[in-house]
Simulated scan of single mutants.
Amino acid sequence: MTETLAATLTGFQRDLLVIIAGMTNTSGQEIKEEIEKEYSGEINHGRLYPNLDTLVNRELVEKGKTDRRTNSYDLTEEGYEALENHREWEDQYFS
């Protein structure tokens, strides 16, 4: 099931998972800064946060609170599994 789930994500959502996997207890702003490096341009809040919410709703990312204004994001076990399954699929074509 996780393999199918990863395949239903957009490339942008998979990129968010990769970034979150490499960080711990990270804020939306930190994720935004990292994804903007990869995408070479500004990512607006209207694109970032709905995609983060989708990942939370699909239980691939856990959303917590750092303080009253700041949320934190971490990959769930399902999120790691989805990335691993996707990577194994990609490896079939890069081997």
Rank of each mutant, 00 (worst) to 15 (best):
P50W: 04
E30M: 03
R14T: 08
I31P: 01
G41P: 10
S40P: 02
E30N: 07
D53S: 15
M23I: 03
G11H: 10
Q13R: 11
N44S: 14
T26C: 15
I19D: 01
I20E: 09
L5F: 11
M23V: 08
L5G: 03
T8R: 12
E36P: 08
R14L: 12
R14G: 04
T26L: 12
P50A: 04
E33H: 14
I19N: 07
A7W: 00
V18T: 10
E42C: 09
D15L: 11
V18A: 07
L17Q: 07
L48C: 07
Q29C: 01
S27T: 15
E34F: 05
Q13D: 01
L17Y: 06
Q13L: 06
G41W: 08
N51H: 14
L48G: 00
Y39D: 09
A6I: 14
F12T: 15
Q13Y: 06
F12N: 13
T24I: 07
T24P: 01
L9V: 08
I31Q: 00
D15W: 02
E34I: 03
I20N: 08
R14W: 01
G46A: 09
T24V: 06
L17K: 07
G28N: 03
L9F: 11
N51W: 05
I20Q: 08
L17N: 07
Q13E: 11
Q13H: 07
N51T: 12
A21M: 13
I19T: 15
N25V: 05
E38I: 15
A7C: 05
G22C: 10
I43M: 02
Q13S: 02
E36K: 13
G46S: 10
I43S: 02
E38R: 15
S27F: 04
I31N: 02
G28K: 01
E42Y: 15
I19K: 03
L9D: 02
R47W: 00
I35C: 05
N25F: 04
P50S: 03
E36L: 10
V18H: 06
V18L: 10
M23A: 12
H45D: 14
H45E: 12
E30P: 00
G28W: 00
D53H: 11
D53C: 08
G46E: 02
T10M: 01
G22S: 10
E34S: 13
S40G: 08
T26G: 10
G22W: 00
L17F: 02
A7H: 05
E33K: 14
M23Y: 11
L52P: 08
G22D: 12
Y39C: 04
Y49D: 01
G46Y: 12
M23P: 04
Q13A: 01
T10R: 04
G41N: 09
A6H: 04
L16D: 01
E34H: 09
F12L: 14
P50R: 06
Q13K: 12
E30F: 02
I31G: 00
E42W: 14
R47Y: 01
D15P: 00
Y49N: 06
T24K: 13
G22F: 00
E33Q: 13
L48M: 12
Q29L: 08
T4A: 09
D15A: 11
L5P: 02
H45V: 14
G28I: 01
L52W: 08
L52I: 15
E33W: 10
T4W: 00
E38T: 15
G41E: 04
L17P: 09
I31K: 02
T10F: 02
